[in-house]
Write a protein that binds this DNA or RNA. Structure first.
Lengths: 338, 338
DNA sequence: AACGTTCGGGCGAACGTTCGCATTGGATAA
DNA sequence: TTATCCAATGCGAACGTTCGCCCGAACGTT
């Protein structure tokens, strides 16, 4: 392999190594023939700059930290995976790279890992996902003035860069769709209280009812952890309601919950899409292959990744930032489950 | 933030900065009180070593390169995602980190990216996944003596470190299961020719037939790209066979193909699990929620990641390597589709 | 003829580490 | 008393960059 240094190039070209450096950066007044000679040697011995040295000198790493979401067992998070992928691509285009790491204690906000990585000059800033109100990571990063940008919102009065998908609007679209289909008794299965994004989706649910002229008293929210079995249990409770109160449509806060709901309906001997409508949220892969294919809300993860990276790099490089918060519109994907 | 240097610590502790360095590494003969004083200052001002400097000095980065699999649009690859996650965790335990990057031209083997990253001292070695026979990346890395380890095999006569899941054995288990269920006319839907791992799975299929005493002439392989619609088309062709030749069970080379097959069966008005058996491969998330839940083969991605990382680090650090190739056993997960 | 100006390039320093070797002072042994 | 030794620390150098400043020569201007 190459692994040559400036001095190797300089020796072969008969100049000082500093001159080589300048030529490579185009910021030297050198005779044209000297420059071409240097470039020739560079290609000949396949010189590549040593980034460790460059980083030490520059005091910047061009690396963006991103913590893996600690998933129990083999449960993955397709939305965040897509986001991560998009962020990686966007970063590469601006000559940055993603540095992924794992925190030990995800929910408690293992702030130590962030402190260490930044203190060690291992990254120039952080990308956060799956944020929540009062998020200790955000609080810490703001306090210590460490550059970062998030995919997800937190407290409204905190001043930082974020990108999020408008979950409220997404759910309003779902509701409008169901109402247009003639549904009047619509229930929701949401996450346990305390989730920021769950709260926005619930707002969309209530707004949807109101716009359809349905009394809030007619609304019902069941709650379940973000797992299919929990969703199934919540759905079973809804199906147990007396016939007059039983919903004809159920909007779910996530696809995983909706998958459980589908199962519960099948267990009850009913048919989703005919006897009852079910919708999900996130449009994770494969939900189009469920039976029936699941109506869902697709998140613009590609744009989200691009924006987050852009804002973070602007911050790192000290450029002014136009908008500190960006809300993206999701897209309703109607399938046979509703 | 901290971002203090050895000199800051030294000044506060009243010693030279080199002494601080030695104390931190425990390789100095210093008076106990000096040591405690230094440690106290270190904690006080929250000193963290600058890794760029350390890396420059050491000539090593403690970073392992891993190329994103270029997925078209939002199609993710759950098996590789799980592998990546596992590798990241394993690396972290040995004080290494993963450095992810994207190649422009995945299939052609954009070898330039590997050369550049290694030449620039950006990584100490590489992890490769989704390998194939004659893989240009592997050829390049061997030629240039760059440390690497792969998840997946290539040419048998190439000498390098790999870990793979025994696809042949996995498929043999599927076949044994189907034969035990009484199936005699079993077809396979595989990928187009040229895939290394597809080839192993086909071997398992043929072996399975043979062990059951079924003539090879009775076997059928249809081929499809790794997409649900392609799988559906292949399945439709099998269903079009005259009744006497039509298989009672179809083993699929992947879950994605199997999902398409499920759909094709449903379209034909038949019921999977009763009228015909279908099996997948990989056990990707959510296939347990399909209707019917899909029988599949689970890959030990956790172990695979750990082994790959271990072998790569041994190589980088110049330690001897016991086994250059490791074959892991997959696990059959029987569900209602078979 | 003396003096600025420009061109072409060298030189020293610094980023923060680590590591081998040198240098103290005090205690011990001869 | 003096040579000896060890413990406790300082010092210089190097990893490969980048950057500002300096310097000689050639040229043109008054």
């Amino acid at each position: 392999m190459s692994r040559a240094t400036l001095k190797d190039v300089a020796a072969r070209a008969g100049v000082s190594y500093q001159t080589v450096s300048k030529v490579l950066h185009g910021q030297a007044q050198v005779a044209p023939e000297t420059a071409t000679r240097i470039w020739q040697v560079v290609h000949e011995i396949n010189y590549e700059p040593n980034l460790s040295a460059r980083r030490l000198r520059a005091g910047a790493t061009h690396l963006l930290g991103y913590a893996w979401h600690h998933t129990p067992s083999n449960l993955v998070h397709p939305v965040l995976d897509a986001f991560l992928h998009s962020a990686a691509m966007a970063a590469a285009e601006q000559d940055y790279h993603l540095f992924t790491f794992a925190t030990h204690d995800d929910k408690a906000g293992d702030v130590g890992a962030y402190e260490e990585l930044y203190g060690r000059h291992q990254v120039d800033g952080f990308i956060l996902a799956d944020t929540n109100r009062g998020d200790p990571r955000i609080r810490f990063l703001i306090e210590h003035e460490i550059p970062f940008a998030t995919f997800g919102r937190a407290n409204d009065d905190w001043d930082f860069c974020w990108v999020d998908v408008d979950g409220q609007q997404g759910m309003e679209r779902v509701m409008a769709h169901l109402v247009a289909r003639g549904h009047r008794r619509i229930a929701m299965i949401s996450w346990p209280e305390g989730s920021q994004s769950g709260w926005y989706r619930e707002q969309g649910y209530w707004n949807g009812l109101q716009r359809a002229g349905i009394a809030a008293e007619a609304g019902t929210i069941e709650r379940a952890e973000n797992l299919a079995p929990a969703g199934a249990a919540a759905m079973a409770r809804l199906l147990d309601l007396p016939a007059a109160q039983r919903p004809t449509a159920v909007v779910c806060v996530s696809d995983l919950v909706a998958i459980g709901a589908l199962k519960a309906v099948a267990n009850a001997g009913l048919e989703v899409g005919r006897d009852i409508a079910i919708t999900g949220f996130d449009d994770i892969p494969l939900v189009e292959y469920l039976r029936p294919p699941l109506t869902s809300v697709r998140q613009p993860t590609l744009k989200a990744g691009q924006w987050v990276v852009k804002m973070l790099i602007q911050q790192i490089e000290g450029e002014p930032i136009a908008h500190k918060g960006i809300l993206l519109e999701p897209e309703l994907v109607v399938r046979q489950s509703s």
